[in-house]
Design a protein around this nucleic acid. Structure first.
Length: 189
DNA sequence: CACAGGATATACT
DNA sequence: GTATATCCTGTGA
């Protein structure tokens, strides 16, 4: 069980240690295989221009969820890090589905296991994460987080789908995983 | 494999 | 009005 205090640290440390951790919502989910780090002083972050109604939970205490709607259609899940008042968070981009595959398939339509959670919008649909989860603590139901066993090898690469600060290697993924949203193009560390 | 286009909430110009 | 931390479908090389 990962306690919310786990998140009261540097976002990059948290991101690296969360690869291989298990994320469940109402018992449904899988192993985290891909994350991206966003910081308050990062032009690509929603918190860069200060608090708004949408990003309010980013500025709240760490160890809580920040859920926002993307392109008017999809939900995306972030885990708030650092100290309260600092808008740092990791975006959960992909899971290796392990729990509740039938329900995930039903929510996503008849799909291959690889297509269930290989993207931030996809995994929110598979786990039924919506705006109602925005601001909820991550160490209380319906969330459950179990730590990685430490065997996952982590690679970094550039973040996906952004135009500002696109050169920063702040995407973290499990090396060789077939469940990431896209294969890292230029792996390092 | 690489695009283009559409759905459409929220924030910014 | 324009852009965006997305996804799906269609077209064509």
């Amino acid at each position: 069980m990962i306690h919310r205090s786990f998140f009261a640290r540097d976002v990059h440390e948290v991101a690296r240690e969360l690869i291989g951790a298990v994320l469940l919502v109402d018992g449904i989910g899988g192993r985290i295989v891909e994350l991206e780090a966003y910081q308050q002083d990062d032009p690509a972050s929603h918190g860069f221009r200060g608090p708004t109604k949408r990003n309010a939970s980013m500025f709240g205490p760490p160890g809580h969820a920040y859920v926002y709607r993307s392109y008017g259609i999809h939900w995306c899940l972030n885990l708030v890090c650092a100290e309260a008042g600092r808008a740092d968070a990791v975006l959960v981009r992909a899971l290796e589905p392990t729990e509740g595959l039938d329900l995930q398939r039903a929510r996503r339509g008849s799909q291959s296991v690889r297509a269930l959670c290989s993207g931030p919008g996809k995994l929110c649909q598979a786990l039924a994460i919506t705006g109602e989860h925005d601001g909820l603590p991550l160490d209380r139901p319906p969330f459950r987080l179990e730590p990685s066993d430490g065997t996952a090898r982590v690679v970094t690469s550039r973040r996906i789908g952004i135009t500002r600060a696109a050169e920063l290697p702040w995407r973290y993924a499990e090396e060789g995983s077939r469940f990431v949203s896209r294969a890292p193009r230029a792996p390092s560390g």
